[in-house]
């Protein structure tokens, strides 16, 4: 029986078009709304960047890290050091991103020696060590933190608009990078490793190399988020930027939204953020509730909210896999469903 294989179906074409429209709409937002809205969105974008990158790491490369805040802090402090030496903070963002990817290489040599289960705490130790090293440098503000120089000359409204655009740019780059990565040869390698590592190895896939590349990319993404944090807050404090709380946020968002899909973290971020706005004054209760939900989702609905939606409605907005259309049956037919399960 012949089978026709396609990347996407009509919903994906529509979602591509819709993404472009949303992007343009978001781009023009600083002209339309006040700065309190855009600065809220900056925080949302930062969270989405982090969740997307964590999802890439855990959902596709099988690397559960609890230490991505190491690169968050490294990115923020890279911007600080460059700004202290006269570089425009906005121009320092790409430098911070690149620097985090480079710094992740030697770190990966160390933490990759730990088995999957211990890898999680190993990355956490690295983040703790980064924090303790940072506070030893008085020029970085020590434990009390440092404020970001170099943005004083900007008009506040203009500065906030630029911050917003920078965050939008980092977010767009992150989502595009994740999407293209998963559609590339590397994405195929990762899927093969996830399904059967020994089998993948036998057909020439190099798991260690593929995982390392994803680790470097995730570090770069976290570095970009860290750069955005210092620019939007205008100061940085080691205990807060290196806090494991960031890991809690990215993990909860990805798990509730759906690990292993691009759509999941987007949905999760919007949900998390809405909850955060309405439960903010509840303090610790907020994290108790979200944490409990994440635990229950991980145990009973491991594919998350988006997994449930895409199963129910047969929907993929960012197609990274393949659709099989057996001849003579509709694309949604039983055989196609079975074949998709296999994917």
């Amino acid at each position: 029986m012949s089978v026709r294989v396609t990347r996407s179906r009509r919903p994906a074409t529509w979602s591509g078009l819709a993404s472009a429209l949303v992007f343009v709409a978001l781009l023009s937002l600083p002209y339309l709304v006040f700065a309190n809205v855009t600065s809220l969105l900056v925080n949302l974008f930062i969270l989405l960047v982090l969740a997307t990158m964590w999802n890439l790491l855990a959902g596709y490369a099988g690397l559960v890290s609890v230490g991505q805040q190491a690169y968050l802090g490294l990115g923020a402090y890279t911007v600080l050091v460059l700004a202290q030496n006269g570089v425009n903070p906005f121009l320092a963002i790409p430098v911070a991103i690149a620097f985090c990817a480079v710094a992740a290489l030697p770190i990966s040599l160390l933490v990759f020696r730990l088995r999957n289960e211990y890898f999680a705490i190993g990355t956490w130790v690295v983040a703790e060590a980064f924090q303790l090293i940072t506070v030893r440098f008085p020029q970085l503000g020590g434990g009390t933190g440092a404020s970001l120089p170099g943005l004083g000359g900007f008009d506040p409204a203009l500065r906030q608009a630029f911050t917003y655009w920078a965050a939008l740019a980092v977010l767009a780059a992150t989502l595009l990078a994740a999407y293209l990565l998963l559609r590339s040869r590397l994405g195929l390698d990762l899927t093969a490793i996830r399904d059967d590592e020994v089998g993948a190895r036998s057909v020439g896939v190099q798991p260690a190399r593929a995982k390392r590349i994803v680790y470097l990319i995730a570090a770069a993404g976290a570095g970009g988020a860290g750069a955005l944090i210092i620019i939007s807050q205008l100061n940085v404090q080691a205990a807060s930027v290196f806090s494991v709380q960031w890991s809690a946020y990215m993990i909860f968002v990805a798990v509730i939204g759906g690990v292993g899909t691009i759509e999941g973290p987007i949905l999760g971020t919007i949900l998390f953020f809405t909850l955060q706005q309405s439960l903010a004054e509840r303090g610790a209760w907020y994290l108790i509730i979200v944490g409990t939900v994440a635990v229950l989702v991980a145990m009973y609905a491991p594919r998350g909210l988006w997994g449930a939606i895409s199963d129910r409605f047969d929907l993929r907005l960012f197609p990274t896999g393949y659709w099989l259309h057996p001849q003579g049956s509709s694309p949604g037919g039983l055989l196609a469903r079975l074949l998709r399960r296999e994917r």
């Binding site: 609890v66 994290l287 108790i288 944490g291 409990t292 635990v295």
Partner: peptide
């Protein structure tokens, strides 16, 4: 196996805040 990491991490956050 990786789910145990996510679940115990979630448990850790819940316990700490509780």
């Amino acid at each position: 196996p990786l789910t145990t990491l996510l679940v115990t991490f979630g448990l850790s956050v819940v316990l700490q805040n509780a």
